[in-house]
Structure formats: C-alpha cells, structure tokens
C-alpha cells in the first residue's frame, strides 16, 4: 500500500528529471562525476541519501527492490531504506539478489553475478578519489580534466614504501576505460574485479557531495597498481563458518569475551541460499 500523500518514489518530478539528466550524462562519460542538485531527504547525510535519490529516479512500478548494507539485508540502514520505498513507491521488495531488478548497496557488490536488466545503485560518501590527497575541488577538477593522476600512484607507492605492499583495502581507486580515475565507494578491494565487464548498470550517488557517476554494462575498469606490485583482491584466509564458502568476502565476528571469533559471509542472501542448499560450515549449529 502506497502512502498517497507522496509522489511516486517520494521525489517531485522536476527533481527526478534533474537527476535523470545527470545519470544519462554519467553513463555517457563513464567514471566522470556529474554535479547534481542533491535534495534534503528524510534521513541524515551519510545514511545513503545519494543512493536513495538515484534509486528514486530510476525506479518504476514494476521493479523489485533490494537493499544491502555491508552485504546484509537485515541491518538498520537496509531495512529503513527498503521500507521507505515500500511506503513511497509501493514497489515489491526482496532479499534475493536474483529476484531484484534494482539493488541499492552500501559498501558491497553481491556475491552472485548480476545480470542484464538489473541496476546496482551505490551509496557513496566521498566520490572524489583524489580528495584526501588534494582538498580543493577546483584543483581535483583540473587534475581530472588533465588526466593528472600521478599523485594517486604516489599514494599507492607510499603504501608500499611503508608497509611493503599496497595497504589500501577498501575504496581502492580504479581507472575507467583508460580515462577517469574513480572511487568505487568503500567496497572492499575484493569486490573491485566485479566492477568491470558487469552485465548490470552501475550507478553511484553521493548526496552530501552532490555527485552522480556511472558505469554502463561491460565497461573496462582497472584497479590501479604497479607491474611489480600487481593488484590483488584479498579476503580473510578462512572459509565461512556458517555455509563453508571459500570464495566469498567474510566478516570477522567476535563471539565471546575470551578471544573467540568466527568468519561469516558478509553477503547474507548468498550465505542463507548456500545453507538452504545444504552447505555447512564448521561453526554451523
């Protein structure tokens, strides 16, 4: 049941048109951050206002909506955004990755490969990959226009000089189609290889920072690295305690006050589907 006091999907039509125009320009120039007039949303900045606005602009009546927060369907952020669109758009919702047509995500890409026709909407806190190296927007904009990305390589090099390897483990910068360096949002670098050549459309919304950017399907996305220090998609060296999966991204969970810990899949839908299919990990009850 929709709350009819709201327009379909909450935002007014003029706002949606503005966001839609930004999305199309973002798709035309993959990896480039398109400025947009982000609106106040009925939730605080940092809770996914950018993602919510992008989802509201792309959603149709026929969509099935899924929200994940760090891979989980049942965390506060995911539950509240899902119910927000249930109320304001009346769309069907799901926790099954394969059944969803629009997936809003905070900091993960689902383990299950996405398909054509699906749309993945990222919540982005800081869209500018160069921001922590150069705080001035006027300068970072110039650096993107001149393809001046040397500073980013210096940062990765300093990682190697200090730690012996590239210690950046999330929000790992990528280069899109050999042109723009892009922040993939704070996904673990384990997920970086899935950004490229994905069948689904990927849209990135940063509400506070007022930027939208996009990756069309099958876009060439390369994680920055060095010949002698190639990019490596890393994860905890364990199997999931609940479903036994060996190739999924894991959360480390402290289970008691005596140093006990277990590793479980961060993607709850992936883990539950495996458990239902009979897979068992060493910690499963």
């Amino acid at each position: 049941m929709t709350d009819h006091a709201y327009n379909f999907a909450y935002l007014d039509e003029q706002t949606k048109r503005m966001i839609r125009r930004a999305i199309l320009k973002g798709l035309a120039v993959p990896g480039y951050q398109v400025p947009f007039a982000s609106r106040e949303m009925p939730m605080p900045y940092g809770w996914g206002t950018g993602g919510v606005q992008v989802s509201a602009a792309v959603m149709t009546m026929d969509d099935t909506f899924k929200v994940i927060d760090q891979g989980a369907d049942d965390t506060t952020n995911a539950v509240s955004i899902r119910s927000f669109f249930q109320r304001t758009a009346g769309v069907k919702t799901t926790t099954k990755t394969a059944d969803a047509s629009v997936i809003q995500t905070r900091h993960r890409i689902p383990e299950e490969a996405l398909t054509e026709g699906q749309i993945l909407v990222y919540q982005v806190p800081i869209p500018e990959p160069l921001r922590f190296l150069e705080p001035r927007e006027s300068e970072t904009r110039k650096m993107h226009s001149l393809e001046e990305y040397g500073l980013m390589h210096v940062k990765l090099y300093e990682d190697i000089a200090r730690h012996g390897h590239i210690a950046t483990s999330y929000a790992y910068p990528v280069r899109v189609e050999g042109r723009y360096v892009m922040d993939p949002s704070p996904i673990p670098k384990f997920d970086n290889p899935k950004l490229g050549d994905m069948a689904a459309i990927q849209l990135f919304g940063a509400g506070r920072e007022q930027r939208i950017y996009a990756l069309p399907p099958y876009t060439n996305v390369v994680s920055l690295d060095f010949e002698d220090h190639p990019f490596e998609a890393s994860k905890a060296n364990h199997a999931c305690g609940m479903c036994g999966a060996e190739h999924s991204y894991l959360d480390e969970v402290i289970v008691d006050d005596a140093g006990g810990r277990m590793f479980v899949c961060s993607d709850t839908d992936f883990c539950e589907s495996r458990q239902q299919a009979g897979h068992m990990g060493k910690d499963a009850a």
Partner: peptide, 19 residues
Amino acid sequence: NPAVQSAAAFRGVMEATAR
C-alpha cells in the same frame, strides 16, 4: 500519469543510453 509513465519512459531511455 506523469510520475509512473515518466519513470517507465526513463528506464527505456537509460537502457538505450547504457547499451
């Protein structure tokens, strides 16, 4: 029905641009 029809039309436009 502008909200619903423009959403459906935009999906078509976006899919055309993205593919």
